[in-house]
Design a protein around this nucleic acid. Structure first.
Length: 204
DNA sequence: CATAGGATCGCCT
DNA sequence: GGCGATCCTATGT
């Protein structure tokens, strides 16, 4: 159970990183309460050549400048005026790659997660969306944007959870119809095991 | 300054 | 399956 090092994020292949993040553990410490979840769904956003990316064609604004910074930093933004979406900045400075985390399975602080979500959904569906997981883990765009993932507020751990490659569904990203031909790229990774039932093993 | 639209969700029918 | 919520961002005048 180790915090992922900078070298994990400081790599060229954002699609590979998105793939490898399946089964890693996203963690937060908010007001002294730690919550953790196994990452079950991710999407890669490949920077200036990717029509789905906020940084397409090198667009550098107050919002997107985070992605042009160092790897291993959070990029959290408000979507539809309602949801904070959590991304991980990868690759070197000035190369605006990012991975959107789209789903987790609760691992630690389950009571806190359930109370934050205010729903009776089962655990396998309580944080199975990009806006749902941020609420579950207490991530908000004003407070958790541009944070160092090697710090002690938001970070990612490797619990050596084994993921059967056959259980990872690879396909097009969600909600990016505007991205034309890039909308079909296989940049989304989903751990299907988590779709229908709770995890049988307590990894904690 | 005004305006359109969004890497979504939950509730409604 | 449809739609409203809700507010920030990016763009244009």
């Amino acid at each position: 159970m180790k915090k992922l090092p900078l070298s994990f994020y400081d790599r060229d292949d954002v699609v590979l990183i998105a793939h490898e993040l399946i089964g890693k553990v996203l963690c937060t410490n908010i007001d002294g309460i730690t919550t953790k979840g196994i990452i079950t769904e991710t999407e890669a956003y490949a920077g200036i050549i990717d029509k789905a990316s906020h940084a397409y064609r090198g667009r550098r604004t107050d919002r997107t400048k985070i992605m042009f910074g160092r790897p291993g930093i959070s990029y959290v933004y408000l979507c539809y005026g309602v949801h904070s979406l959590f991304n991980i900045v990868t690759n070197k400075k000035d190369i605006p790659h990012a991975v959107l985390v789209r789903g987790i399975y609760p691992l630690k602080g389950v009571e806190t997660i359930v109370s934050r979500r205010k729903t009776k959904e089962p655990l396998y569906r309580i944080a199975d969306g990009p806006g749902k997981l941020t609420k579950a883990l207490g991530i908000e765009f004003r407070q958790h944007n541009n944070l160092d993932l090697l710090g002690d507020s938001v970070w990612i751990e490797d619990h050596s959870i084994e993921v059967n490659p056959n259980e990872i569904e690879i396909g097009p990203r969600i909600g990016i119809d505007y991205a034309e031909e890039d909308a079909l790229l296989p940049y989304r990774f989903l751990w299907r095991r988590n779709q229908n039932s709770d995890f049988p093993i307590d990894y904690q």
